[in-house]
Design a protein around this nucleic acid. Sequence first.
DNA 1: GCGGCGCTCGACAACGTTGTCAAAGACGGT
DNA 2: ACCGTCTTTGACAACGTTGTCGAGCGCCGC
Lengths: 344, 344
Amino acid sequence: MTTLPRRPRPPTLKDVAALARVSTKTASRVVNGEPGVVPEKVAAVQRAVQQLDYRPNITASSLRRLDGRTAAVAALLEDLANPFSAEVHRALEDVAHEHGVLIFAGSVDEDPVRERQLVRAFTSRRADALVLAPTTDHQGYLEHEVPDGTPVVFVDRAPVGYDADAVVTDNLEGARRAVEHLIGHGHRRIAFLGDLRHIATARARFDGYLEAMRAARLDVVPELVVHDLKTADHASTALAQVLDAAEPPTALFTAQNEITRGVLRGLQARGLQHTVAIVGFDDFPLADLLQPAVTVVAQDPTAIGRAAAEILFARLAGDDGPRRTVVIPSRLIVRGSGELPPAP
Amino acid sequence: MTTLPRRPRPPTLKDVAALARVSTKTASRVVNGEPGVVPEKVAAVQRAVQQLDYRPNITASSLRRLDGRTAAVAALLEDLANPFSAEVHRALEDVAHEHGVLIFAGSVDEDPVRERQLVRAFTSRRADALVLAPTTDHQGYLEHEVPDGTPVVFVDRAPVGYDADAVVTDNLEGARRAVEHLIGHGHRRIAFLGDLRHIATARARFDGYLEAMRAARLDVVPELVVHDLKTADHASTALAQVLDAAEPPTALFTAQNEITRGVLRGLQARGLQHTVAIVGFDDFPLADLLQPAVTVVAQDPTAIGRAAAEILFARLAGDDGPRRTVVIPSRLIVRGSGELPPAP
DNA sequence: GCGGCGCTCGACAACGTTGTCAAAGACGGT
DNA sequence: ACCGTCTTTGACAACGTTGTCGAGCGCCGC
């Protein structure tokens, strides 16, 4: 095996054309598989491509092409390090890979300023499309940030003030099912511990809780409802407060991953994990190994990412039907913690 | 609030120049903050930029610029959906964000073919630099894939056959410490359950196990060593096999995340979780909530990503000192499962 | 033998930007 | 008044690629 020399300057189409003794245009035709080139020249160009290890400069070609496609799409997710975003990202990647498209990803971190910064950064790169899990209240600004014809697909959260496709979880129904499950096991005093209320999905989950409670003609006790929990630690604190109420709950509905984690920690600290029932929104690894194993309403981030990618590529392929919102159903996974009977 | 019109074609520098009544070159100078333009023209151009909401086309500018920088770097990680890769990615993103640089990420999935495909895809996009967690045995191929002057930084795994910077965990030392910990608690029959042996880090962890055992003059019993476990299920099966040995182990060292997970599941199924000690390599969420809580050697993916990004930007800034390998220390986190005494 | 058609091919311009360079003007020194 | 120097500016080419268009050629039918 001979070691090829390091290439100081990658070969261009001109180099290929020169070696194959054809014009750059003909070389371009061969590289792009366009018809109307005689077989000998096709072969000559392909040989030259091989020999020089030529690789088209996609940025240059996107500059010149009429459609200006860069074969790259942008994904603005909540936080690439959290498992939900990471799985959505991965699913997007898999579909994009089939289309020969790469993904630029960024974390918006619940920071509206960063969201807008990143949108600008990505449009500056002329991404072909945008996948967005928004943290702003209103995405009207996209109207003049995103060039006409660039598909935008929202994930996890629906657009507000902007007409775009969206793929979301059935937050309200999922939450309702979780609470109904607890009610079905005889619970009457069920606490709600939830996320920042300005997030639409958090509100939807609370609405699901309310619907289930009302449908069963149960009181929604204000002391048993806590919103705006930002971290697992906040959730632990909130749990303490709820458990110390005059009439403490026999069951808990925790409306988000981190909150569930904090609450589980708090329950263990008090030795109440086998006494107080709990159902969480969002699955997490090892939920089945805890004692008791944790019953959850699981979202399906992979399905969300895949659906978003499929809409996106359909749009890029020319689909200009009306905007759609796809709802990915959540699934109740029964494991034990949600089936504990109410303490007397 | 008036709604701005959708822009069918993003404004170009020419549009800005025309509006400001200067040449495109002068507009370019202002946009790039070059000196030698009188204040009135600077102001006029800035007004035009504002008014048109002009955004430079980075791909076009990188095409023309001498250094050809695209302000984008590629990250090829193992699997963007796994927490380790996701955290490395996130750390890279944070440092890149400070430099106004975006990240293209891809998952190589332990697939050498995909690794090479992705390297090509990224170099085709003319990424300024490459972060790589390789899955190939040998990365000599980068020699002629990566243009001269493009920094490459390896993460998690050291380069083989290619001279590049690297940021890795102290796998051998971490594994040794884990096993020494078990020995320190009186264990003599300690099983090893490990990953695919063709992965260098997996070998290093096994070497750490061997070193610790030999240093304590303990026998390495072949029946208690299992390699090449690919999934949590394989690990469960391997556990059964090891526990059914003539003289079963009193402690386990599981050399990777998924393996730890499978083994924990298996131990619970047999009701042995309070009997057989275990230390795992790699931390995972909720390890502290299991019973017993799981003692692990934790890697620091955030530190790895950050260190890699810092080397990378130093290289891009011109640092051409000798290649470095940065070792990020792992940390033994004592939680309970590793401190169980040996069963009689 | 001639006109017309279809196929193949390359010259050239263009995409949006920046590097080069020379022109034009301002200014200072004699 | 003249020269040299410095500052500011824009015309132009170039980056690597593809779209447009017309030239050249062979072949067909008459």
